[in-house]
Design a protein around this nucleic acid. Structure first.
Lengths: 347, 347
DNA sequence: TCTCCTGTAGTAAGCGCTTTCTGCCCCGGG
DNA sequence: CCCGGGGCAGAAAGCGCTTACTACAGGAGA
């Protein structure tokens, strides 16, 4: 990288300052001068030095995107949408946290080090006071540095303020609608394979589920609810194991809800292995409406979360391209998608 | 970010140079001094300034990862594996090129600008001389800048040299094995929904397919082959459309191969819609063995590409952690995975 | 005892930009 | 005809780090 600003300046017979102004575009430059500079840039095949620019301007072109795992479609779709929305203006730094709070903090530190322009944090938060405090501290540090922080699909830990925003998913509402759908079909004993017990998303979806049950007088006592619920990671395997466990505890189940679509698919596999028909013997439902859900056999009833739109909005907030409502919180609605995996229980 | 190296140096009563040396670790520092510096770093909660460091050292902690689209599992899996392999040492900058050569070049320029330590380029290349030239020029420029370039799942455009490596997939071999499997089951008229005509991957998979046919005297003339082949993007929709088209042209088909698993699923959907049983009436096969393929109904026969291992190796090459064989090319073998979507044709 | 290493640490010169502060030039108004 | 002001462009001071190069102990060999 021999060619520097100074070389371009010399060739265009202007000062380095002028070249910088032409390239950054945030200062008026006479048209003739601009053309001369641009020509020189072209002729020399000049590529600006990002780090030098970032150092002088105290901010970089990087936007961090924290996900549990980009290989998981739920996160992959969001990461993709964020990246696409950034265009060629900013670069997306994708970090797999594996859902671990420690790694999340580690990556936030690395992004702080890079003087990232913004950070989009996806995935549910762990609900422990220590984590909340550590997380808030780190976010505060980022904000102090001028980095915009956007929480995507995660509730604002505290009241978001200044340059911190939240795009939240209607998990509670979606969970409620899904269970209402099942109840209205006639189901009374509904199993639930939930996500890890300490995550916000898990809690919200489960709360929606229980709210729907309660609204129809099906809540029962905590013990009964507990017997119908198992927890595990958001994986297919967890659905498989959970379904077997629930079937064992409550042979009379007529429906099982998975905490997400992958879990639901695992539930389906377990039921099928037990010789049960879906939805003839047992109805199954998921959450998220990922692309493969419509293709499954039977097609999965689920709750659609507009991941792309939500992620694109998060990206726009990160870039400061979209105004934020007072309070900085956005709620993205969840929508029931009823398909073939749910039906009325046998009489 | 008020705290700088100088602050740490003052607090530890050493010079800035010493602090830098302790943090970078590439220069001996006495144990007592090191401890003092580390303590100061801790007390001041110092975070190094990435851009400043990158400017002075002329290289950054960024590794570019070019993919068609991270939301596509094929690329998502590779991006995830690369990111994980980088650990917290380097940051992965993921760029969606959408398969467009222009965007690929744009992103390579942006990564050059960032003085990325390495770039991993995934996805098949477009086979036109202009693109090959432009791409080679850009890669050369990156190499000249000290950036390691690793091609993942794409043939080395020219002989890779110096800091350029290639981890290639056994697409030809995989294609051959798959078709041999079908032929050995007794299929004679095999349709093929291929990828875009101008991509290397498409060509290799198709060549493997045709080599297998030729080996069994089923090649026929170019016309016959052409009639059994349609091209389209690597999408489900393309498989759906392609299958209908092929069925129309050649009603006597007993098997259809998709250019990848998504295409194969589309083929399945089209066949089912036509009232055809899989594999009773028509066998279907895909390529890649993505996670959803095993779960499809019927489970898809396909060719497994060890994407994670390949991507991890690419990442190691990018970091300079793994020795490369002479010539810098690695070939990753493809393996046939026979499942329920293929069977002998009806008598 | 003196010199010469070897092992540490400090000095200082940048790395290539951005941006504030100046200053020039030219126009319009008095 | 002279002065004030606006529009552009240059000078130069950093931004915070890395890394020669230099300096200075203290110990070994002569």
């Amino acid at each position: 990288m021999a060619v520097t600003l100074a070389d371009v300046a010399a060739r265009a017979r202007v000062s380095a300052a002028t070249v910088s102004r032409v390239l950054s575009g945030n200062y008026p430059v006479a048209e003739a001068t601009r053309a001369r500079v641009l020509a020189a840039v072209d002729e020399l095949d000049y590529v600006i030095n990002g780090p030098a620019s970032a150092l002088a301007a105290a901010t970089s072109d990087l936007v961090g995107v924290l996900v549990n795992d980009v290989a998981d479609p739920f996160f992959g779709i969001m990461a993709s949408a964020v990246q696409s929305e950034l265009g060629s203006e900013k670069l997306a730094v994708v970090c797999n946290t594996g859902g671990s709070p420690e790694r999340e903090l580690t990556y936030l530190t690395l992004l702080l080090r890079q003087r990232a322009a913004a950070v989009v944090i996806t995935g549910s938060a762990v609900e422990t006071p220590e984590y909340a405090a550590a997380s808030a501290a780190k976010v505060g540090r980022l904000a102090a540095n001028g980095t915009r922080v956007v929480l995507l699909g995660r509730p604002a830990s505290a009241a978001p303020e200044g340059s911190t925003f939240a795009v939240e998913f209607g998990n509670r509402e979606g969970g409620r609608r899904l269970t209402e759908h099942l109840v209205s079909l006639g189901h009374r004993r509904i199993g639930y394979v939930a996500g890890p017990a300490d995550r916000t998303t898990t809690r919200h979806r489960l709360e929606g589920h229980r709210a729907a049950l309660a609204a129809h007088g099906l809540g029962g006592d905590a013990d009964a609810l507990g017997r119908l619920t198992v927890h595990g990671p958001y994986t297919r395997q967890s659905g498989y194991d959970g379904a077997l466990e629930l079937l064992d505890r409550e042979p009379g189940l007529t429906a099982v809800v998975g905490s997400n679509d992958a879990v639901a698919l695992g539930i389906c596999a377990a039921l099928r292995e037990k010789g049960l028909d879906i939805p003839g013997d047992v109805s199954v439902a998921g959450f998220d409406d990922l692309p493969f859900s419509a293709d499954a056999t039977p097609a999965l009833t689920t709750v659609r979360l507009p991941l792309q739109e939500a992620a694109a909005r998060a990206a726009r907030l990160a870039l400061g391209r979209e105004e934020s409502p007072a309070g900085g919180r956005h709620l993205v609605p969840a929508e029931l998608v009823a398909r073939a995996s749910t039906a009325a229980p046998r009489a």
